[in-house]
């Protein structure tokens, strides 16, 4: 039986009828049409499906859309302001923090969370902060470099992404 779910995705309020078994990642891709969030492994390991819920990075393949009731979801599509890329997007571009690019949206979202928690991370802290994301091309060196560069660009003054009163999963 379908249920109504209402949530905010990249600042836009949405209301949809979904089956409880619909995973959040499928909701984002197939219902909301936001295909930037990728499905890499389907086993909760690769992090390609990482999105922000409130101020927390989560794997959208390991959550049902109905759990996101009243949540504020941010996907890779919500980062740029018009033509101006988010500093992390720009840094992945500048440092070539990717090869095939499939894992990149997940890495960038995990990076946004990492820098919100720790605006000036060491390389070790970057690697630990990205442990939930797998890249099979780069060997990670340029990914770490990109996060380091973005931290510099952002001046170590990263503000926490705005927390909403109701985050999915309830805090």
């Amino acid at each position: 039986m379908k249920r109504k779910v209402s949530l905010t995705v990249n600042g836009t309020r949405r209301e949809d009828e979904v089956e409880p078994r619909l995973l959040l990642v499928h909701y984002l891709r197939d219902v909301a049409g936001l295909t930037g969030t990728h499905i890499g492994c389907d086993t909760s390991q690769c992090g390609a499906c990482t999105v922000l819920i409130g101020d927390k990075a989560v794997k959208s393949c390991t959550m049902f859309a109905v759990q996101a009731q009243d949540a504020d979801v941010q996907t890779i599509e919500g980062l740029a302001k018009g033509d101006q890329l988010h500093p992390l997007q720009q840094a992945f571009w500048d440092e070539h923090g990717l090869q095939c690019g499939f894992c990149t949206p997940g890495f960038i979202m995990a990076g946004v969370y990492l820098l919100s928690q720790n605006p000036n991370p060491t390389d070790d802290e970057i690697r630990k902060g990205l442990e939930g994301n797998l890249c099979r091309c780069t060997g990670y060196v340029n990914i770490v470099k990109a996060v380091r560069t973005a931290a510099k660009t952002m001046g170590g003054q990263t503000k926490q992404p705005q927390a909403t009163a109701a985050t999915a999963g309830g805090d």
């Binding site: 989560v58 794997k59 390991t62 969370y113 990492l114 442990e131 939930g132 999963g169």
Partner: peptide
């Protein structure tokens, strides 16, 4: 336990 995303949930 797991990684940041797992520990958040």
């Amino acid at each position: 336990v797991g990684d940041n995303q797992v520990r958040n949930m």
